[in-house]
Design a protein around this nucleic acid. Structure first.
Lengths: 342, 342
DNA sequence: CCTCTGATTTAAACCGCTTTGGCCGATACC
DNA sequence: GGTATCGGCCAAAGCGGTTTAAATCAGAGG
């Protein structure tokens, strides 16, 4: 059942039927009723492909996920971010297009999406401190929102980000207030911007208390349980081991906990741990009471905000870039306590 | 730059240019060369929207992810499955459309995708034992591949699945061979088909050795660390605690491990653990040596296979349903050992 | 030299919708 | 009564490709 057939059945022109369905005013109320009823009765849905060609809009948003050819690690926050963004798209009648491309082909893939007219805008993920995607997209004139900022990119663009620096600043300060002096940092890969900012926050807190930074207490790598375990184990084996850890993810924190317990120590008593909690649906930080003390910010919410921001941008491409900096809550769990007395 | 403009520049008709670019034979070789060169030079990409309307094919595949309104849990295997499937789509020039819908609206969303002509086929996830989506899709005539089978649905359809029953059968047998007598099952939600089959395998192994099943040793719930921890803790607190666990996921296994260690026991010595390892990229079972003894099957591979199967099905909708049953490897890690002597 | 054939190329229809511009009849206004 | 206005509806022209049917051209054959 297409528009023409429906119009024929109603003894009306396709024009009028189209107008009625799209809510244009120049249709008689009675006629509109009749059309709406018929459309429902015949279960009519306008053909998406035709709408897109006719309107010139794709009614779709792209998410390009680079898959690092070497690491092959899919971003674990992916699913929840997508869930958040997807809700917004669905509500607004947009489709979500996912491209999985090798990171070498990523720039090319934006060109393609734009030239093919497959999407009206994109969201970029896993932003690096110096990310050339931003320049590429600006030049391309393809509306986009970045999940995360790029520190070394000084161009106007829209982003949604968490205040990673302040989150780790506060986390570290909190530990310092508990009299911890040696605090280990278990961070993500620091070419990624969020990780860089977290380290800045950590260092800022230390230097505010005139505590020298110790490279042996700073780890950067994948945000996996295994990496967290290794990093924490190594640090705990130091002559002067840390009495606390700041971990960049739930998984790192779980690894740290395992390392702590493997040494016969008790988390929260002998060694404190604070994690960054993205509130991933399948990795909850406890059900009722939080297990880990954590800086918490919902990645799903970030997805919703980014999606909405992008749709606004698409609706009015000339509008000024929007920004949204989310603050992470510091929530108290059972993984932190005063530094043990020596 | 569109087809007409390109044709104008070449002093050719759009028809010829279109033919040349699409590899039709009735174009002079020299002309074709000229066209291809010009297309490359002008960076021409045919407009996806127009192609779709003209050919009647969407050149897109849909993945509908139901988000349970209550649990809100995104499937953790999501990201890796998508990564696998996405590679195949990209290679074949297909787009991947993701719909995130509340599970109540899921059936409706398939209707929509079909009626709107937005996709040529779909892949369904998180299959329930009695899943009405299969019937719906068959009636709709929308090609689909199911990731997982539906036990109580007796209709012909295409699927990719792991031999969950045999995986758990083998895992349980392995533990029985190590003289474990009381083996706890930490399973996923058993309305999901894969979980049901895993329990069948577990029970089959027990009954083959004439070991009575004990409801107190069977847990079913979310595949989270927390749930795994609770389940294992509860079982370990029994008067006759299990000496081994079979866990349905890496996360459950990690929870079990925590429960074991919380009681001052050692995994692999006092209590054995086998997990099902989906080889999720961000949840590796160890880097070099596996931590957990595991039944292993790559969810990413499943994604690739399912995607390829769907594309085949779309290319020839009349073809018979295809099936692919993957066997999980049983790999030896450090989490299992002989049952402790009492 | 004319016709036929096969190789190339083209004109035009079409995919299903939106949208511009126009038409028609009725009401308002002078 | 004549005309400007307006509500309501329609014809037709796109949107940018693909595809069918037909035209053109060159060489072969008679």
């Amino acid at each position: 059942m297409n528009l023409k057939e429906l119009a024929l059945k109603l003894n009306l022109s396709p024009t009028t039927v189209s107008r009625a369905l799209n809510g244009y005013p120049e249709v008689n109320a009675a006629t509109r009723e009749r059309i709406l009823a018929a459309a429902k009765r015949h279960n009519y849905r306008p053909n998406t492909r035709a709408i897109r060609l006719a309107t010139g809009r794709a009614m779709a948003v792209g998410h390009v996920f680079p898959v690092a050819t070497k690491s092959e690690i899919m971003n674990p926050i992916f699913a929840d971010f997508i869930a958040g963004a997807g809700e917004v798209y669905t509500t607004n009648g947009y489709d979500m297009l996912l491209s999985v491309v090798s990171d070498a082909a990523e720039t090319q893939s934006y060109h393609d999406l734009k030239l093919r007219g497959a999407v009206d805008g994109v969201i970029i993920h896993a932003v690096r401190s110096s990310d050339d995607r931003i320049k590429t997209l600006l030049q391309l004139g393809l509306p986009f929102v970045s999940h995360g900022r790029a520190t070394s990119v000084d161009l106007p663009y829209s982003w949604v980000d968490v205040n990673n620096r302040r989150a780790f600043l506060r986390a570290t300060e909190f530990l310092l207030d508990l009299a911890h002096q040696r605090i280990g940092l278990i961070n993500g890969k620091e070419d990624l911007d969020f990780a860089l900012r977290r380290r800045m926050g950590y260092l800022e807190a230390l230097s505010a208390r005139a505590i020298a930074q110790d490279p042996a207490l700073m780890f950067t790598g994948e945000l996996t349980e295994h990496a967290g375990y290794l990093a924490a184990s190594t640090m705990l084996a130091l002559p002067q081991p840390p009495t606390a850890f700041v971990c960049a993810s739930m998984l790192s924190g779980m690894g740290a906990r395992r390392a702590i317990e493997a040494r016969g120590l008790v988390m929260g008593r002998d060694v404190s741990v604070i994690i960054f909690d993205d509130e991933l649906s399948y990795l909850r930080n406890g059900e009722d009471l939080p297990i880990f003390t954590a800086t918490r910010s919902s990645v799903r919410l970030a997805g919703q905000l980014a999606a909405q921001m992008l749709l606004d941008l698409i609706a009015d491409p000339a509008s000024a870039p929007q920004n949204r900096l989310l603050e992470a809550d510091l929530i108290l769990g059972q993984s932190t306590g005063p530094a043990p007395r020596t």
